[in-house]
Design a protein around this nucleic acid. Sequence first.
DNA 1: ATCGGGATCCCCGATTCGGGGGACGGCCGC
DNA 2: GCGGCCGTCCCCCGAATCGGGGATCCCGAT
Lengths: 211, 211
Amino acid sequence: MSAEKAPITCVVADDHPAVLEAVAEFLAQAGIEIVARARDGEEALERIEQRKPQVALVDVRMPKLGGIELARRAQRSVPETAILLYTGYGDRALLTEALDAGVRGFVLKEAPMDDLVRAVQSAAAGSTYVDPVLAGTLAASSVGNKLPQLTQRERDVLRLLADGLSNEEIGKRLFISAETVRTHVRKAMDKLDADTRTQAVARALRDRLIA
Amino acid sequence: MSAEKAPITCVVADDHPAVLEAVAEFLAQAGIEIVARARDGEEALERIEQRKPQVALVDVRMPKLGGIELARRAQRSVPETAILLYTGYGDRALLTEALDAGVRGFVLKEAPMDDLVRAVQSAAAGSTYVDPVLAGTLAASSVGNKLPQLTQRERDVLRLLADGLSNEEIGKRLFISAETVRTHVRKAMDKLDADTRTQAVARALRDRLIA
DNA sequence: ATCGGGATCCCCGATTCGGGGGACGGCCGC
DNA sequence: GCGGCCGTCCCCCGAATCGGGGATCCCGAT
């Protein structure tokens, strides 16, 4: 018994043609059956729902529908498909967000391509593959290093703060008093462990808590 | 006369193995001679200086040495090599910075791979290739929409500001007075057209003027 | 040689911020 | 039903910031 079991079925999605081709080609040569390719999130979701592959290897950043949201939806409609994220970088926010979106694995684009095969095989086998580098990040974040949870209101305020509005102006915009804005800002600063409102905004931006 | 002129020589550099393979493979099939491949900026620069290819297709973000800085150095040591940037996205900051770094072209990773060939050929022929999408951005930015140029000092100050330091603390850190810090902040605010220091930091972060 | 820009420093008055406190209603979960 | 979180609003006070001036020095470009 060697190469004669049914091949793993896989959908590949990436908005970069080069990546899409390379990945699909490589996996195919490794004996994995590429049942579909997609260039954006929506297309990927369609293909996954149509073909119900064992594995879907998707880019995180794609037009129309990002990898995370794609995973979230595919999780509901096609739970038997394991979603693997193919990402160029990994920060805690992405990691944790993807985790509870039901993602079954991470592969870094910097990693050797052989890792792709291992990841796909792991995912198909039901286990989870996480890139070693990301695993480190993950470990660090689970050892008490969880990133703060901002409320919607706090994000609203920080967002406007980042746009240069004063407390007063933000209050007018959100139909609340400047005092309340101050409260939100201070609570956000507290959560973000920031000494100044500016630092709070910078941290929120860097951690992608606000856009 | 068709396929029998000397092939264009090209170095390809990308830290993502998938991209590196795909691009090199594709260009090779298009009759372009790939004289070297590199996985990071330093390696790329070495290869370029050794092989002096007509074209070097390099990723913007690479370990050790980014594409822009690579272009800047290669421009001095090997001016006969045309540097093509292969980038996943294009914002004005990147575009303008790359332009005066001597970059000879841009290709988006989202673009069809055939564009790669055209870009390489254009670059080899001495002209400049810019991805249509980026060309749009470029046009928009040349119609008075140029993004601000911050001085090193201004970036330093904004950087520390983003870390929550006060003027006083920044001054201590940079061995200048808090008053001078204020001046830099105000000039940066001025350039960034920001109403508050917080907005200045947010804009600088978003436009990647500071990290 | 002049001119501009960058970096440095200073003063002022008005406003805002940071950090502390308290308060009230609503909603959700236990 | 009660505690806890969220969102809202208010007070005080000292410190910092804002926006507007002006000033000096040096270097590189013209």
